[in-house]
Design a protein around this nucleic acid. Structure first.
Length: 248
DNA sequence: AACCCCTACAACCGCCTTCCC
DNA sequence: CGGGAAGGCGGTTGTAGGGGT
């Protein structure tokens, strides 16, 4: 444990600090993180307290190893959403964004790279190291949280949610297309989006909007009229090219 | 036994968005 | 409307622990 210049403690949390934080959250509930250090008697910054609770102490956290199903879902959601860890974690009950991010970085990112490089070989694409990569326009992610007030704002007019194409190897600029959005084909993007948002696929809209309110598992998402829409990953995937993900 | 390397994951940091005054 | 505070996010770093040499 070390102290910062402003006197706050940094580094690994002690069991005593964990206990104090837990007692504080039990008593006052989550939120008002700026008040937590004072209430709990901790010499930690608000962000540190929030992170410790959300990533480690929260009772709902699943600390088991990722199951095959979870890995499968993670791979597919990452393909769809990119590095939107909080969104991905929202569909994996008990998993935190940090868990998902760490798991991806340690277990799956390499597999992802291998996938790209093997497809590159398949397509007989050789990398031209002397050619500098051309700058690709990328659709920036929308704000990470949707407030109730603005829940549908991104659905009015042309939205800016990411649509990540399945990994199909490298493009002409030697860049993996599964991690970027090529801005050159906006019409195609629009058609894909319309397809995703048409009446048969409103579950995706629901998926995007359900981040704040729901604590649902990946199986079902409830919409306004009370109907339950199946969160069908296969259906989602078939909207792109139906590529299957091979697991170890 | 000592050293090195790798993996896993907790924690930090900086930035962005939202909220409130 | 502008500015500051708070909440939240993704990227990155630090480090403990395990395995190999």
């Amino acid at each position: 444990m070390e102290a910062t210049s402003n006197g706050l403690t940094k580094g690994a949390w002690t069991a005593e600090e964990d206990s104090l934080l837990k007692q504080c959250i039990d008593k006052y509930g989550e939120g008002k993180w700026h008040q937590v250090p004072l209430r709990a008697g901790l010499n930690r910054c608000r962000k540190s307290c929030r992170l410790r609770w959300l990533n480690y102490l929260k009772p709902s956290i699943n600390r088991e190893k990722f199951s095959t199903d979870e890995v499968d879902l993670l791979l597919r959601l990452h393909k769809l959403l990119g590095n939107r860890w909080s969104l991905i974690a929202g569909r994996l009950p008990g998993r935190t964004a940090n868990d998902v991010k760490n798991y991806w970085n340690t277990h799956l990112s390499k597999r992802h790279e291998l996938c790209c490089s093997s497809k590159m070989k398949k397509k007989n694409i050789t990398s031209p190291p002397t050619t500098p990569a051309q700058k690709i326009e990328v659709f920036k992610p929308r704000p990470r949280s949707f407030s109730v007030k603005n829940a549908c704002s991104h659905l009015n007019g042309f939205p800016k949610v990411d649509v990540i194409p399945p990994c199909s190897g490298l493009n002409n600029n030697n860049v993996c297309e599964s991690s970027i959005i090529c801005g050159e084909d906006e019409k195609n993007y629009e058609s894909v989006y319309k397809n995703l948002m048409d009446k048969d696929n409103m579950w995706l809209k629901s998926l995007l909007e359900s981040q704040e309110a729901d604590a649902l598992g990946p199986e079902a998402t409830t919409i306004e009229n009370g109907a339950t829409l199946a969160f069908d990953v296969e259906q989602l995937w078939n909207l792109f090219d139906g590529e299957t993900v091979e697991l170890d």
